[in-house]
Design a protein around this nucleic acid. Structure first.
Length: 203
DNA sequence: AGATGGATTTTC
DNA sequence: AAAATCCATCTC
């Protein structure tokens, strides 16, 4: 199969375009000698200080500094005190924008993902492992499964840690749905923008 | 439906 | 210093 790692320049383009084109690409994680991969099926775009749902809407702070970094930089943040969310910085340096990876379909390393999920905070008292279809179908879940934490925050995507690959799968325009983003009701009018993109019939 | 749990940000 | 908020997930 033909595959190549997305170059830095892929992310150095308008955020909405990057978001849409990330659908159908493969998130590839290398950790402790293991390889994990998954097909990206849902993303959200966060764009600029005027986007009230973007962390940078409150200005440039210690936490949001990374959003102003070079495209292709990893922005990892904690939500609800428990879960990591993985974003890739887009557009150009000094302009705060990123794409949040919300869901992938597990491909390689499923056994490792299950192990990582069982170790995670919220599963300490769990009775059973979730089915494969629920392993990485949320932003916090995929970070648990892929072992993505704040340790990657601020680093560039890289071959030996975390990359996104193009495996030459054709995604037709008609298979992409645009929906409002999740959990951003506080963002007033911005909450209605259809900045969440997902591959139809893949959830 | 209710509990979780910590960093960031805002308010006093 | 304290309170409010938050791009979610889990069990029941």
């Amino acid at each position: 199969m033909k595959r190549f790692i997305l170059p830095w320049s892929f992310f150095a383009r308008p955020t909405l375009r990057v978001a849409r084109e990330l659908l159908g690409k493969y998130l590839v994680r290398r950790l402790d000698g293991g390889v994990y991969s998954g097909k990206i099926i849902e993303v959200e775009a966060y764009k600029g200080q005027e986007d009230l749902a973007c962390h940078a809407s409150r200005g440039r702070t210690k936490r949001t500094e990374v959003l102003y970094a070079k495209p292709g930089t990893i922005y990892a943040h904690l939500v609800y005190g428990m879960y990591w969310c993985f974003n890739v910085v887009t557009d150009r340096a000094e302009y705060p924008a990123a794409v949040l990876i919300r869901a992938v379909v597990p491909v390689e390393g499923v056994g490792l993902m299950e192990k990582n999920r069982d170790k995670s905070v919220s599963r300490r008292r769990a009775a059973a492992s979730p089915p494969v279809s629920h392993l990485t179908n949320g932003p916090g879940k995929l970070c648990m499964a892929f072992g993505i934490t704040g340790a990657l925050h601020g680093k560039m995507l890289g071959r030996d840690t975390l990359t996104i690959e193009d495996r030459a799968e054709k995604i037709s325009r008609g298979s992409i749905s645009a929906l409002p983003r999740v959990g951003v009701e506080y963002a007033k009018h911005c909450a209605k923008y259809p900045l969440r993109f997902q591959l139809a019939r893949s959830l």
